[in-house]
Simulated scan of single mutants.
Amino acid sequence: MLMGCWVRAIFKRSAAFEQCKEHCRMFSSSLRPRPRITRARKNWLRAAYADNIRRETIEQPVEPNLIFRERFRKEMDTVKLAPQIFDYFLVLDFEATCDRTRMPEVQEIIEFPVVKVDAQTMEVVSTFHHYVLPRVNPALTTFCTQLTGIIQDMVDGQPHFEEVTQLFQKWMDAEGLLHPECKSCFVTCGDWDLATMLPMQSDYFKVPVPSYFDRWINVKHSFSECIGHFPRGLMLMLESLNIQHTGRHHSGIDDCMNIVKIMRALSERGYVFRINGQRTAVRGGKGKKF
Results as ranks from 00 to 15, higher is better:
120 Q>T: 07
165 T>Y: 02
23 H>Y: 14
64 P>G: 10
128 F>V: 02
34 R>D: 07
29 S>M: 04
160 H>A: 08
266 L>A: 02
246 T>G: 08
290 F>D: 12
126 S>C: 06
23 H>I: 15
204 Y>P: 06
107 Q>D: 00
250 H>T: 07
16 A>Q: 13
205 F>P: 10
127 T>F: 07
280 T>I: 11
106 V>N: 13
37 I>H: 06
165 T>G: 09
54 R>C: 15
34 R>A: 06
104 P>G: 06
142 T>G: 01
166 Q>L: 08
170 K>C: 04
76 M>Q: 11
4 G>A: 14
184 S>L: 04
168 F>Q: 05
286 K>V: 03
127 T>S: 05
63 E>N: 05
25 R>N: 15
268 E>V: 02
21 K>W: 09
166 Q>E: 10
55 R>N: 14
191 D>Y: 04
235 M>F: 02
250 H>G: 06
209 V>Q: 06
103 M>G: 02
29 S>E: 05
243 I>P: 05
132 V>D: 07
52 N>Q: 12
122 M>H: 09
251 S>D: 15
60 Q>L: 03
77 D>L: 05
129 H>Y: 15
41 R>T: 02
33 P>D: 11
95 E>C: 02
172 M>A: 03
16 A>Y: 13
141 T>N: 05
47 A>P: 02
53 I>H: 01
289 K>R: 11
280 T>R: 11
281 A>M: 07
163 E>S: 05
91 V>E: 11
76 M>A: 13
151 I>D: 14
256 C>A: 12
133 L>E: 03
223 F>K: 04
127 T>E: 15
67 I>W: 03
271 Y>T: 07
210 P>D: 14
87 D>R: 15
164 V>W: 01
182 C>T: 15
276 N>E: 03
45 L>H: 00
251 S>N: 14
37 I>N: 05
130 H>F: 09
134 P>E: 01
228 G>L: 00
8 R>G: 01
242 N>W: 03
94 F>K: 00
72 F>M: 13
234 L>T: 02
225 E>Y: 06
159 P>G: 02
190 G>A: 09
185 C>S: 13
179 H>V: 06
62 V>L: 09
111 E>Y: 12
132 V>M: 04
50 A>V: 15
207 V>R: 05
150 I>M: 08
133 L>D: 00
108 E>D: 01
67 I>D: 08
37 I>E: 07
18 E>V: 11
101 T>A: 11
60 Q>I: 01
139 A>Y: 10
54 R>W: 06
222 S>H: 00
267 S>W: 04
251 S>K: 02
154 M>V: 11
257 M>C: 06
195 A>H: 08
195 A>C: 10
13 R>M: 10
232 R>T: 13
